[in-house]
């Protein structure tokens, strides 16, 4: 067990070191493009969006939950990229020829991605705060948001890693990634509530796990515990199923790639 922690600790620190060496990348990781969605898109649609439809005091407060979950989505889907590069340049093989627990590499990646994602979510909630979006459920609500985000992120990162282990080239990886992320966003309640969508879109959006996540995060920010709790309960169940499926697929891809 002590060995296990030593491995995971060292591997996680490697990701941290890598990030800290790339000054630009670190800057843009914290001041991420997702902030532009909140600041520009949020304010841009302030008057175009009907508060009767969004059921929120203003559009930016409606959008905040969406941007939080979009951040989780992007980080999760990109979570396997570094393992992909490790696979391609042989570093992964070097790690795997050492007497480490087979899961250490993967766990270190989860740990790193979840930490970065949580920091980013906090930055977004902080900026939203500056635009007068105060989470109705307070700090406990923020903690709940982080927890839900992590549950969603684990599944997404597992998908990303499964892809990293399965694709032939990183070109394939990035095209699938680019193809996945936009429909996931548009076919969810991130930008517009389901009731305001064309029927066929809202129908599809119901099957998008991201919708469930946003529907739990949004009342935590806008309404309060009484309205949020049933959604939170629901999303925990949905996420347990989602994560189980993704982890199963990820483990299968990993085993296939590793011998």
């Amino acid at each position: 067990m002590e060995h296990y922690w030593q491995e995971i600790g060292a591997l996680t620190m490697r990701w941290v070191k890598r990030l800290s060496r790339e000054k630009f990348s670190m800057l843009f990781t914290l001041v991420q493009p997702m902030l532009f969605w909140l600041i520009f898109f949020g304010n841009l649609f302030q008057r175009a969006a009907d508060t009767q439809v969004t059921q929120a005091p203003n559009y930016i407060s409606f959008l905040a939950a969406g941007v939080v979950v979009m951040t989780v989505l992007n980080n999760g889907l990109a979570g396997g990229v570094d393992l992909l590069f490790d696979k391609e340049n042989g570093f992964l093989e070097r790690l795997m020829s050492t007497p480490i627990h087979r899961s250490s590499v993967i766990l270190s990646r989860f740990l790193f991605v979840m930490t970065i994602t949580s920091l980013q979510v906090l930055v977004i909630l902080g900026v939203a705060f500056l635009f007068d979006v105060h989470p109705a459920t307070g700090l406990l609500g923020v903690a709940t948001i982080l927890l839900i985000g992590m549950m969603f992120g684990v599944g997404l990162t597992a998908i990303s890693m499964a892809m990293a282990f399965s694709v032939k080239s990183h070109g394939d990886f990035f095209s699938v990634l680019g193809f996945l992320s936009l429909p996931m966003i548009f076919l969810s309640s991130a930008l517009v509530p389901l009731v305001a969508m064309p029927g066929w879109m809202s129908f599809l959006a119901k099957f998008n796990p991201m919708t469930w996540v946003i529907d739990a995060v949004r009342p935590l920010i806008l309404s309060g515990w009484s309205e949020a709790l049933p959604h939170v309960g629901m999303v925990v169940i949905v996420m347990l199923v989602f994560d189980a499926l993704c982890l199963y697929g990820g483990a299968k891809a990993f085993r296939r790639a590793m011998g």
């Binding site: 490697r14 070191k17 890598r18 060496r21 340049n89 042989g90 570093f91 093989e93």
Partner: peptide
């Protein structure tokens, strides 16, 4: 076989 090196470390 490949230069299994992490450029940033």
């Amino acid at each position: 076989q490949e230069r299994a090196i992490d450029r940033f470390l």
